[in-house]
Design a protein around this nucleic acid. Structure first.
Lengths: 355, 355
DNA sequence: ATCGATCTTGCAAGCGATTGCAGTAATTAT
DNA sequence: ATAATTACTGCAATCGCTTGCAAGATCGAT
């Protein structure tokens, strides 16, 4: 049982495999425990000792073994992120910023594409739940009641869906709608069309309500078209109905749809903005490169990605601390929700109504 | 030392935390070792035993702890994949298929976006190398000489770059060029333009050579424009020079560029295909939704993603088996290289030259 | 100097799997 | 029926790191 086959040198058997904590400890002339402490918590290690350890670390080019660390801490260092469609530039950007933030905290971000499918969303949530320390679900189709069972297993953060009991980062949908409508109003449009996204998307439904209420209170004529898939193709499909509606100003659920719409309109010979003003939402890179450049509401994508990771990090830490007390002591920790605001960017796709 | 705080029940302390191998073993009435074997290798476990184990497994809803497994096997179950730009639909598709394949093998795919930057590519390679079992680098800007140092540490597969000593999945670039040129020739175009991608992209350089050679041997006039970034914007920028060149047929490095080009051309009032025929490459979804629909060479994206993961898997297994012999025994294992072929898809953006 | 409080550091016990080795049961051969 | 194989299963060591506990060192106060 104590064969001690590893020599004094630690476990560097014969020169190949990577150095371990033990090797570092040996070189620094301290115990493995000390090395560990010097590397993780800054506390409880004398300055000089830490220095010695640190230099041993990079003398050996030592990098801790994640699996081993994970095994003892119970945390894998992996965060999961579900997006409906990687190729949508909006999510691409979200992914980049989230990834950057995660990396800054020495975590790794696992991306999964749900292909806009509820089934995939559920499936991925289930299978990821066990492998990650926390999960970020972007624009989820499913609410907490469906995702619920896994909810208990792993910290969860929603992006762009406000739901009972789920911490989330959301962009203020009402404001987006208000800005868009107001802008169109300023241009004297009285007959608007709203291209709705999927009905199970919280953000779309939310905007729908708001735009209806607003049209009503402002005395605007409103046609709701859709639902359409929130994709280029979805936008294209909306072209005919939009023209048929007779509206002079269109608000699309997002930029990609707006672009699809404009592409089709161009092919139909309908001039934008002369015949029809269109405003999108998100301000994806393509929006300003398009002809005509798209008027849209810029979403604080980078901030959203960063904050989501931050928030998830807090939840994870809280979860790691708490288990001491079985039942939630102080009622319940308030569910955090971060609200972000968009910003109207006026470009060429909108103009004064010709009426 | 042997406080044995865990009761007979295995380690289910008081009902909360997830079940472990030991719990399953207890419930099934076998040793942990047997459970492990029943779950990993199908071999060496009696049918009836396995059945018992399996039912215990799902009675407890047991899922093995990846970290623990990783610690003893030395494999994390994580594969890394670097792409230049997540939002390019070409890579998005590649990611999806790779992810599906990985999941099928109970592996997880870690995606990282290099933002088309060499520095990021190097950086991410370095930091990922230690955390994954293998790495797939798509359309790498850097060759093996730069990525080299890490090459030894972890199995590496390139996608769309052929390089000495690196296993890869590549799409036959020569064929792509040949098809495109041939198609334009059939339409009586004698003056071609080639919109080049970045000079450090193997696929772009390769096509450049080929198109030059081909133009030469076929007696075609050829203008090489660029290099441009392989993005929508890059394509837009190429519009003026393209028109100025006087060519009647353009071959863009990829679809996204072709789309950017066409968008700008439309804004300039240059009709496609009447005034200019354009052919892209990849056949991203947008290509057929565009007006005019883009003629392009479809890349076998799904296959590429799948094969890359497969190939990487083989390398990993080989690497895991081999270490017995320190020096490569039979010369060197042949570097595998998988060649895929594209396919011409003729749509509306090309037509007979008006000359 | 002496004693308790405070810092640092080391010991050794895990974390939850996998796996070489060895013992036992089941099979087949003789 | 008995010996020789082969098929299963269990024991216990290990993977590399973290962390509770306790011993030793350090230091200020008496």
């Amino acid at each position: 049982m104590r064969e001690q086959r590893t020599s004094l040198l630690g476990s560097s058997k014969h020169g190949s495999s990577r150095p371990t904590l033990v090797d570092v400890a040996a070189l620094a002339g301290v115990s493995p425990a000390t090395v560990s402490r010097a590397l993780t918590r800054g506390d409880a290690v004398k300055r000089t000792t830490r220095r010695r350890v640190l230099s041993a670390v990079d003398a050996l080019d030592y990098r801790p073994n994640r699996a081993a660390r994970g095994l003892s801490t119970g945390r894998s260092g992996v965060l999961g992120m579900l997006v409906p469609d990687i190729s949508n530039p909006f999510f691409a950007e979200l992914i980049r910023s989230a990834q950057a933030e995660a990396r800054a905290h020495d975590q790794v971000l696992l991306i999964a594409d749900t292909a806009q499918s509820e089934a995939e969303e559920l499936d991925l949530t289930e299978s990821l739940a066990g492998q990650v320390d926390g999960l970020i679900v972007c624009s989820p189709r499913l609410g907490p009641e469906r995702l619920g069972p896994r909810l208990a297993e792993v910290p969860l953060v929603f992006v762009n869906r406000r739901a009972e009991g789920v911490p989330a980062v959301v962009i203020d949908q009402d404001a987006i709608v208000r800005m868009s409508v107001r802008h169109l109003q300023d241009f004297r449009h009285h007959h608007l069309a709203f291209l709705a996204g999927p009905e199970d998307l919280w953000s779309s439904e939310r905007r729908l309500e708001t735009v209806r209420a607003l049209a009503n209170s402002e005395g605007l004529e409103l046609d709701v078209l859709g639902p359409y898939e929130p994709s280029f193709e979805g936008g294209s499909q909306a072209a005919e109905p939009t023209v048929a509606s007779g509206a002079t100003g269109v608000i699309a659920f997002n930029d990609v749809m707006a672009l699809g719409l404009m592409a089709r309109l161009a092919a139909m010979g309908i001039a934008v903005p002369e015949k029809l003003s269109v405003v999108g939402s998100d301000d994806v890179p393509l929006a300003h490169m398009w002809t005509p450049a798209l008027t849209t509401v810029r979403a604080p994508t980078r901030a959203a990605g960063r904050r989501a990771v931050e928030l998830l990090g807090e939840l994870i830490e809280a979860g790691a601390r708490e288990p001491l007390d079985r039942t939630p002591p102080h009622e319940s920790p308030p569910v955090r929700r971060i609200e972000l605001e968009g910003q109207l960017v006026v470009r060429e796709s909108t103009s004064r109504a010709w009426a």
